[in-house]
Design a protein around this nucleic acid. Structure first.
Length: 429
RNA sequence: GGAGGAGUCGCAUAAUGGUAUUGCAGCAGAUUGCUAAUCUGUAGCCUUUAAUCGGGCUUGUGGGUUCAAGUCCCGCCUCCUCCGCCA
C-alpha cells in the first residue's frame, strides 16, 4: 500500500506508474472516493462533537432540562447512524481499489509488458550439453524410482507428487544446505505456521479470496494456506515498532508453500515445474530505508552463491515493470538451465529477490524508532528465495544425468544427502 | 472440543455507568554540577492550521443497550487454570 497523501500529491506520477506496470486500477476513483470519505468523516466528527457536548451537560442538568437535551440528541443519533453506514460503504470501495495500486519502481527498472520484457544481466555457466539422448525429469524420476505423480493424482489430483527414496534425502539436504548458508549470512532460522489469517495475507500484498487468487482458503475461520513464508515472516513483525539499533532483522523461514496456480494450465506445467505444494527456504529482511537498495544486492548474491555451489548453469534477470508483483519496487529472478524447457532447453525461474520498500511495511504497520531523534517511520522489507525445492530438484536431475542413467549429486550436497549419485532401480510399488 | 477467569500507554497500576488515575522506564526541556540528582513536560492515529489552538477516534477486537460504556449485554481474538482428546 502506498501513502494516500503521497498519491494525492502525485496523481500524474501514480497514473503513469500504474500504466507502465500494466496494473488494472482506476487512480481517479481512489482519489474521488478518498475525497468523499474525508468529507463524510468531517461531517460525522462535527455531529459527534455536538453529541458529546450535550452528554457533558447532562450530569448537572435537572429533570426538565434533561428531557430537552434528550429530545435534541435523538435527531443527531439518527444522523450519526446514517453517516456511519455511508462511511463503511465508501470505505470498502475505496480500500478495494486502493489495494490494487502497485508500488513505485526503481529508476533502472526496464519498461516492458510481461516476462519477455525482463532483461538478462548475467549468465553463469554454459547450457548443459549431452553426448547421449537425455531424459526429462519425469522420465528420470520414474527410472530412478524417486518421483511418483500417478499415485499423487489418485490421492490429491494433478500437480501433486510423492518424493521417494533419494529425492527425499535430496529435499532435506537442499533445505539443510540453504539454511546453513542463510545462517552464515546472519539470518535467524525459523519454521513458520503454514496457515495464516486472511488479514495478514492481505497485508503482505496477496489476495486470499476471489477468482484470481493463488491462495487456498479454508472454510473454517478467515484462514488460508500460505503461498510462501514471506507472508508469515512479514506477519511476524506486524504492528511492531523496532528499535533502530536492532535493524536489520534477518529471518530465514522454512515452510511448505501452497498455490492454486489458477489460470496457468498447460504453461510449463510438466512434472515438478508447476505444482500445488512445495517446500521453500525463504530469506526475509526488515531494514532501514537507506539500506534497502544495498541489501537487495546482498540478497541476490546469497542466491547466486547457492546456485553456484550447486554448479548449475543460470542467468539473472532484472524484471521489467509489467512483470513485477504489486508490492515490488525492484526485483531479480534467477533462472536455472532446464534442458527440457521449450525447444532444446531454456531457462526456468528458481528464485526471486524483491525490494518492497515500505509497501508491505505500511500495511503490516511495521515501524522503526530512532532512539536519539525519536523519529518513527516505516521499515523497508525485502524477500528472496534461498531454495525452492522442487524446481531445484528438477534442475539437478535434468542437468546432472549421465550416459549410464545415473544422476550425479552436486559435490556440495553429498555430505548433506549422504549420496554421490542416484542409480536407476526396479520399482516395487 | 468443554467449564471457569483475565486482557487499560514499553512495564506496573486506579477508575459507585459521568467522559481514562498514578508510579517506573524512555524521550524533551530547565536547574544544579559530575560514576549523577532534582524539577517540569511528554500516549497513539485521523483531521484542522503556515505553525499553534481546536475537533474526532482509540481501555484485545467487532457489534448492542444508554444522553453517556474500561465498567452492562452479545460475537470473535489472545492468555491463564481445570477437564476431554491427541502426535
Amino acid at each position: 500500500m502506498l501513502d494516500i497523501r503521497f498519491i494525492l500529491k502525485n496523481v500524474d506520477l501514480i497514473k503513469q506508474n500504474t500504466r507502465e506496470r500494466y496494473a488494472n486500477v482506476d487512480v481517479d476513483k481512489v482519489v474521488t472516493l478518498y475525497g468523499q470519505l474525508k468529507q463524510k468523516r468531517q461531517s460525522l466528527e462535527e455531529i459527534q462533537r455536538r453529541s458529546n457536548q450535550i452528554a457533558g451537560r447532562f450530569k448537572s442538568a435537572d429533570k426538565t432540562t434533561r428531557k430537552q437535551l434528550k429530545a435534541e440528541v435523538v435527531g443527531l443519533k439518527q444522523t450519526i447512524a446514517v453517516i456511519k453506514d455511508e462511511i463503511v460503504f465508501v470505505e470498502n470501495e475505496y480500500t478495494e481499489e486502493m489495494l490494487k495500486i502497485p508500488n513505485l519502481v526503481a529508476s533502472d527498472v526496464p519498461q516492458g509488458k510481461d516476462e519477455y520484457g525482463n532483461v538478462p544481466i548475467k549468465y553463469i555457466g554454459e547450457p548443459t550439453k549431452f553426448g547421449f539422448k537425455p531424459l526429462d525429469h519425469v522420465e528420470l524420476g520414474k527410472k530412478l524410482d524417486i518421483l511418483d505423480f500417478e499415485a499423487a493424482a489418485k490421492v490429491t489430483g494433478s500437480k501433486f507428487y510423492f518424493l521417494k527414496n533419494e529425492a527425499v534425502l535430496l529435499e532435506l539436504g537442499l533445505i539443510r544446505y540453504a539454511l546453513e548458508l542463510a545462517i552464515k549470512h546472519g539470518f535467524t532460522p525459523v519454521t513458520t505456521p503454514e496457515i495464516a489469517r486472511d488479514k495478514i495475507i492481505t497485508a503482505s500484498g496477496f489476495s486470499p479470496r476471489g477468482p484470481e487468487s493463488q491462495i487456498y482458503s479454508l472454510t473454517k475461520g478467515a484462514l488460508s494456506l500460505i503461498g510462501t513464508s514471506e507472508i508469515t515472516l512479514g506477519g511476524y513483525m506486524a504492528n511492531a515498532v523496532i528499535p533502530e539499533k536492532n535493524l536489520p532483522i534477518k529471518i530465514s523461514g522454512v515452510s511448505h508453500c501452497f498455490r492454486t496456480e489458477a489460470g496457468s494450465g498447460g504453461r510449463e506445467s510438466k512434472g515438478l515445474y508447476r505444482v500445488h505444494q512445495f517446500s521453500k527456504v525463504e530469506l526475509y529482511q526488515f531494514v532501514h530505508p537507506d539500506k534497502s537498495a544495498i541489501v537487495h544486492e546482498e540478497m541476490l548474491a546469497i542466491e547466486e552463491e547457492f546456485y553456484q555451489a550447486l554448479e548449475l548453469p543460470y542467468r539473472v534477470l532484472l524484471m521489467c515493470k509489467g512483470d513485477l508483483g504489486t508490492p515490488a519496487y525492484r526485483k531479480y529472478d534467477i533462472e536455472a538451465w532446464m534442458p527440457f524447457i521449450g525447444e532444446g532447453g531454456g531457462y526456468g525461474e528458481v528464485t526471486s529477490a524483491s525490494n518492497c520498500t515500505d509497501f508491505q511495511a505500511r500495511r503490516l504497520n511495521t515501524k522503526f524508532k530512532n532512539r536519539v531523534t525519536g523519529k518513527i517511520d516505516f521499515v523497508h522489507t525485502l524477500n528472496g528465495t534461498a531454495v525452492a525445492v522442487t524446481r531445484t530438484i528438477l534442475a539437478i536431475l535434468e542437468n546432472n544425468q549421465q550416459a549410464d542413467g545415473t544422476v550425479l549429486i552436486p559435490e556440495i550436497l553429498q555430505d548433506y544427502t549422504g549420496l554421490q549419485y542416484i542409480k536407476p532401480k526396479a520399482r516395487k510399488f
